[in-house]
């Protein structure tokens, strides 16, 4: 399970490759269980007409999540309110992060702000962002 070094990538962007290698090493040492990363963790998919984003936001009140789109930048912002542990309670472990979070993602193209949809389910937020008409590639007829 040694990290695979890709020579071509190394030549194009050594810094990125180094980071990737570091991530792989971290994963190796904690047995692939946990990698510290920004909150929320996100996944991005895209095709020619749409971008889809999924974000892990367990225990966040959907009403406390703000989504903003400016051009091709998506911002996920909000707050996770701590569990109400009583003053008398003895806390043994507190690993779940609480408080405000903010994550900014760059999308591959500009999206249509009016057509964005977001759905929160089982602690995962799924956002659908259709490409704006203006940013779609246009075929131009070459006239003879």
């Amino acid at each position: 399970m040694w990290p695979v070094m890709n020579r071509w990538e190394l030549e194009t962007d050594p810094f990125r490759e180094l980071q990737q290698w570091q991530r792989q090493m971290n994963r190796l040492f904690d047995g692939g269980r946990s990698v510290s990363r920004a909150f929320p963790a996100v996944n991005l998919w895209g095709n020619a007409d749409e971008v889809r984003v999924a974000a892990e936001l367990p225990g966040v009140d959907p009403g406390k999540i703000d989504l903003t789109v400016t051009g091709n930048t998506l911002t996920i912002e909000g707050e996770r309110v701590p569990e109400a542990a009583g003053e008398q309670d003895v806390v043994y472990r507190q690993e779940r992060a609480n408080g405000r979070f903010l994550r900014t993602l760059r999308l591959p193209f500009e999206v249509d702000n009016d057509k964005i949809e977001a759905l929160y389910e089982n602690g995962i937020l799924r956002i659908t962002l259709p490409r704006s008409e203006e940013s779609k590639p246009r075929k131009i007829q070459v006239q003879a």
Binding site: E83, R93, N122
Partner: peptide
Amino acid sequence: RPVYLPATDVYERDDALVVVADMPGVT
């Protein structure tokens, strides 16, 4: 399948132990 260690809070109340774990995507 990757195995994750969920972030967990554990606290003790007068009458019970409470374990709270983040498991996004789990029903």
